[in-house]
Nucleic acid binder design. Structure first.
Lengths: 113, 113
DNA sequence: CTGTATCCTTGGGGATACTG
DNA sequence: CAGTATCCCCAAGGATACAG
C-alpha cells in the first residue's frame, strides 16, 4: 500500500487514486468509459443515446479530454455524412478493467440498499 | 459485465460505477478514505494534517457525508478537550480495497508520464 | 451526422471568524 | 480539540442555436 504523505510526491498527487480520479472525474466520464468498454467503435450519436441526459457540448468536451488523457481514441472517416468512431486505447482498457471491482462494489451496495 | 442500458435501472444508475462515484465523488473523499485505510482511528486534526489543503469545513462535511453513506464511522469520547476518532466501516474497507486496482493504474500511469 | 459558439446557472468548495 | 456559521467565488456543466 502506498503511503499518503509519501516523500517524492512532488507532482501534487499523494497516491495513485487521485491521479486516476482526475482522469475519470468528469460527470459522465465513467459512463462513457463503460459504454466504450462494453462495445468499442461507437459513434458520437450512439454515445449520446447510450449516455442518457448528456448534452452534445459536454459529450464532445469529455471525449476530447479523455482523448488528451490517452484513454480514448478517435477515428474520423472522410465521408459524407461524417462518421466518427470512438474506442478505448490500451490504457483506457486497463483503466476500465481497474474500475471493475469498484463497479462490483456499487452493484453489491445497490442490492443491499 | 453489466449492461449500460440495463432494464431495471430505475434507480437512476446505469451501472455500478456511477453508484460508487457518487460516494467517492467529493474532491477529497478518496484521500480521506485512503488515510483511514492506511491507519484507522484517526482524529479530526490528524486528518486535517494528513490531507493537505483541505479546510475544516470541507473535511467536516465530507466526513458527515461519508458517514451517511455508511463507509465511515465516527466515535466521540466524552472528554475535555474533546476527542473524536474516525474509521472505516466494513463497507468502507471493501470500498477501499475495490479502489486498489484504480490506485495501481494511477501509479503506473505516473511512472510512464 | 458531428460537432462549435454563446450565454447562463448552480452548487461544491474556499476563506475566515467564531463556539462549546 | 473539534467542529459551526457566513459569505463568496468560479469553473463545470446545461440550454440553445448554429455550422460544415
Amino acid at each position: 500500500m502506498a503511503t499518503l504523505n509519501r516523500p517524492g510526491a512532488e507532482d501534487g498527487h499523494v497516491c495513485g487514486i487521485d491521479a486516476a480520479m482526475e482522469v475519470i472525474g468528469g460527470k459522465w466520464k465513467v459512463l462513457i468509459l463503460w459504454a466504450l468498454h462494453e462495445q468499442p467503435r461507437r459513434r458520437f450519436g450512439e454515445l449520446r443515446r447510450v449516455v442518457p441526459g448528456i448534452t452534445e457540448k459536454v459529450l464532445a468536451s469529455h471525449l476530447r479530454e479523455m482523448e488528451a488523457d490517452g484513454i480514448v481514441d478517435r477515428v474520423a472517416y472522410d465521408e459524407v455524412p461524417p462518421r466518427v468512431e470512438y474506442g478505448l486505447t490500451k490504457d483506457g482498457i486497463r483503466l476500465s478493467d481497474a474500475l471493475e471491482p469498484l463497479a462490483a462494489w456499487g452493484r453489491e451496495r445497490r442490492r443491499h440498499a
